[in-house]
């Protein structure tokens, strides 16, 4: 169950997408998300779908691997769909039960919302699956550099992100073990009402927090021992520099954005 979360996991492969500069991928993700929430109608939908399929094919990451990440948000998706289904006002009423009405617009909205959420998760997981967290944070750090002028601790934020990403799989595994260990002592995480279930999380969360703090403490010491003193004076093993394919990718992105906007205005 917990192993299904794919966000933050890197899938090693040699593909064009893997080799792109992380700044390009960050920008692409941004543009993709904007277009995802601004497209309207079937043409826009097809455009975004085509873009997503193209990226997935180029990335050489097995499709099943990305879909796995969806399981974690099934409930969120259902709730969103239900809200859209019942709460969208419209004239074309399809069904009316008591005070709840389902309209044609509602169905449309629900479907589009589901599609958007699925595309959002799949699309962003392409980025995390093809970019090592270090590259990602490097990219973020470099892209956000201008913010340093207004005293935003860009390097610290980037470092925090990269460490968080490194420890996600470890903590997930640890959660699994603690859960099993407490179940071996008769703990029940599945039954009971909401309050009982919330209470049953204590034996899981306390050890998990303690372990996370211990790890953080160890890690801080290990980093210090390796001469880490913050971002000043650091060099890079893999400095970011744009390649020809990165410029090509930017061009493709611009074209994609223009098409989505055109589709929205014209159709």
């Amino acid at each position: 169950m917990l192993r299904d979360i794919t966000i933050g996991q890197y899938y090693p492969a040699k593909s064009v997408i893997h080799q792109l500069d992380p700044r390009v991928k960050l920008m692409a993700t941004l543009i993709y998300i904007i277009s995802l929430f601004s497209f309207q109608g079937i043409v826009g939908f097809l455009l975004v779908t085509a873009f997503l399929i193209l990226i997935i094919r180029l990335s050489k990451v097995p499709f099943s691997y990305m879909v796995k990440g969806l399981r974690a948000i099934v409930i969120l998706m259902l709730i969103t769909a239900l809200f859209n289904l019942f709460l969208t006002p419209g004239e074309d009423v399809l069904l009316q039960i008591w005070k709840l009405t389902i309209t044609m617009e509602g169905v449309k909205n629900a479907v589009f919302m589901m599609v958007r959420l699925v595309y959002l998760i799949v699309g962003t997981s392409v980025m995390t699956l093809t970019t090592t967290p270090n590259q990602l944070t490097d990219g973020l750090e470099k892209s956000l550099m201008p913010l340093r002028k207004i005293h935003v601790p860009v390097h610290a934020i980037a470092m925090m992100m990269s460490i968080a990403l490194r420890f996600i799989p470890i903590l997930i595994e640890e959660t699994d073990i603690i859960m099993k260990a407490q179940m071996a002592r008769g703990a029940d995480f599945e039954n009971g009402n909401l309050i009982k279930r919330a209470k049953s999380m204590v034996p899981l969360l306390v050890p998990l927090f303690i372990s996370a703090f211990r790890r953080a403490d160890d890690l801080a010491m290990a980093m210090e021992a390796r001469c880490y003193v913050g971002g000043e004076g650091r060099t890079r093993m893999k400095p970011l520099s744009y390649d020809k394919r990165d410029y090509t990718a930017y061009l493709v992105l611009v074209m994609f954005l223009v098409l989505v906007i055109l589709a929205r205005i014209i159709l």
Binding site: I177, I178, K180, A181, Q182, M183, A184, R185, G186, V202, P203, V206, P207, I210, S211
Partner: peptide, 17 residues
């Protein structure tokens, strides 16, 4: 069954809470 077959995990002190 879980009470009849007691299982002590590796590093069991990590589940104290």
């Amino acid at each position: 069954l879980r009470t009849k077959v007691g299982l002590v995990f590796q590093y069991p002190e990590h589940q104290l809470f």
